[in-house]
């Protein structure tokens, strides 16, 4: 798996101890870009169904997953986000015919790039959630939060002031 590069980076002796301590208390900050028509609606449905998930995710609504510029992901990481999620409509269900497929092509590239520079695959994730999948959305939130918790606080790319 490509994320081994990242694993090496976070398991340096000095950082291991910190990561383990952090795992208990530390709450990651995660930015989610959700398309208006499917995933954002799926998040709403999770709310209407009162499905509980971790409070770590800050949602930014975009018209389509295709609107998500790779620089948004990098900017979020630079600003100290510990994780980023991009979620759109299922393939074939895009409100904009095939915007999600355009997004998918773009993300395949950015994902490789991120792995190459040592960003763990748990940190930046892509998914599809439809408007009727409230429970899937809640489960996805928890799995993303757990994934980011596993790899610990983000250090790479973070802009120190």
């Amino acid at each position: 798996m490509g994320n081994q590069v990242g694993d090496v980076a976070t398991t340096k002796p000095d950082s291991t101890a910190e990561t383990t301590i952090a795992a208990d208390d530390w709450q990651p900050s995660i930015v989610a870009f959700l398309c208006n028509w499917c995933s954002y609606a799926g998040a709403d449905l999770a709310g209407v169904s009162r499905l509980q998930y971790g409070p770590n995710v800050r949602i930014i609504r975009v018209p389509c997953s295709a609107r998500v510029d790779p620089q948004f992901i990098l900017k979020a990481l630079q600003n100290g986000a510990d994780g980023v999620l991009v979620s759109g409509c299922h393939p074939g269900d895009c409100h904009y015919i095939h915007g999600n497929l355009v997004a998918r092509r773009k993300f395949a590239v950015i994902k490789k790039f991120l792995e190459h520079i040592g960003i763990e695959s748990e940190r930046v994730q892509f998914s599809w959630v439809s408007a009727s999948e409230g429970s899937r959305f809640a489960a996805l939130m928890n799995s993303v939060i757990d994934g980011v918790k596993r790899v610990g606080p983000s250090r790479k790319l973070v802009k120190e002031l």
Binding site: P63, R67, P70, Q71, F72, G99, V102
Partner: peptide, 27 residues
């Protein structure tokens, strides 16, 4: 949909209501 905005390498297109600067301000 904004697909063109996120695709352009020269940042020529922008999407009213979801401009780069608007989304970046939120980030």
């Amino acid at each position: 949909c904004g697909a063109c905005v996120a695709t352009c390498k020269g940042s020529a297109p922008n999407l009213n209501g979801f401009k780069d600067e608007q989304i970046l301000s939120m980030i």
